[in-house]
Design a protein around this nucleic acid. Structure first.
Length: 274
DNA sequence: AATTCTCTCAACCGCTTTCAA
DNA sequence: GTTGAAAGCGGTTGAGAGAAT
């Protein structure tokens, strides 16, 4: 009963990837692309069913010939053993770490602002958010949200789910943007301005990050819009994402008002262009 | 120096969606 | 229209590193 497991756990490596595994995966994808993740681990090396090890550096492969005889071949191990990894694991490793266009390192202030803004619009749709941050992966953004941004918003009195103030605020009532801006102060003990020597877009060491939430979003139709994304918007628009009830996604007016996407925007195949 | 605590993030798990037969 | 396999996604876990005691 139930679903067939995606791989045989007893015969696959788990945990952190080794340099050799990384190299093998990169090499295979560079040569062949990643057609089928499930078959990739086998294809990424000799999938040995009929073999015996010769020594630590070679092994013997035997196969039966049509005439009934056996053919023996000696393979020298030059990174040829198949990747003993689940296809899912290969996919994740490639997408989140090995892809050449993956941007690594600290998130910039601009990226933080964008993530907060997009999270308000899209909720926990990490892959969609990642689609708006070139070089960043959904996993990375998700981790960053949970470990940094979410906490910072909470400290600033903002519910990270609803993006609404968790307690009465003296800022403009009902203005989410103003309320969120309060989070930038991060408590009274923090100065509102960064030190002058601070690098642009870089957080000073040991300082709280300051989030400028004055980012604006413009909406333009884009021909290259992915259909999946627009479909998602269409399916979620009438009720709006749970966390987003209060913003017209189309007009991109963030407010506390209990409005959904307005009909005008909903009818358009609009796009978020940042 | 040793131990404990906290935080980060890579990786896993299981569910949903997509697609082909 | 149904079914099953594969891909994609979001939530969660746990190992390792660094900080605190």
């Amino acid at each position: 009963m139930g679903r067939k497991p995606c791989c045989d756990k007893a015969h696959t490596n788990r945990g952190a990837w080794t340099k050799e595994e990384d190299d093998r995966l990169i090499e295979y994808i560079r040569m062949n692309g990643h057609g089928s993740w499930r078959s990739l681990p086998k294809a990424a090396g000799v999938y040995v069913q009929n073999f015996v090890f010769f020594s630590s550096s070679s092994f013997l492969v035997f196969s039966r010939l049509p005439n009934g005889g056996l053919r023996f071949r000696v393979w020298f191990i030059v990174g040829l053993i198949g990747l003993l990894r689940c296809g899912k694991s290969c996919r994740l490793r490639w997408i989140n770490y090995l892809r050449p266009d993956v941007k690594r390192g600290n998130f910039t202030i601009d990226e933080d602002e964008l993530i907060i803004k997009l999270h308000k619009l899209l909720g926990n749709k990490w892959s969609l958010i990642a689609g708006r941050l070139p070089g960043r992966t959904d996993n990375e953004i998700k981790n960053h949200w949970n470990t940094h941004i979410r906490r910072r918003l909470l400290r600033g009195g903002i519910d990270p789910k609803t993006h609404q103030p968790t307690k009465p605020t003296t800022t403009e009532e009902g203005n989410c943007s103003s309320a969120l801006t309060a989070a930038t102060i991060d408590g009274a003990e923090k100065p509102p301005q960064p030190p002058p020597e601070q690098q642009p877009n870089q957080f000073p060491d040991g300082e709280e990050e300051h989030v400028n939430l004055e980012l604006t979003l413009a909406l333009f139709p884009t021909p290259s819009e992915s259909t999946a994304e627009s479909k998602l918007r269409r399916t979620t628009a009438p009720d709006g994402p749970d966390e987003d009830a209060g913003a017209c996604v189309g007009c991109c007016q963030l407010s506390n008002e209990d409005s959904h996407q307005c009909q005008k925007c909903y009818n358009q195949d609009f796009n978020l262009t940042l």
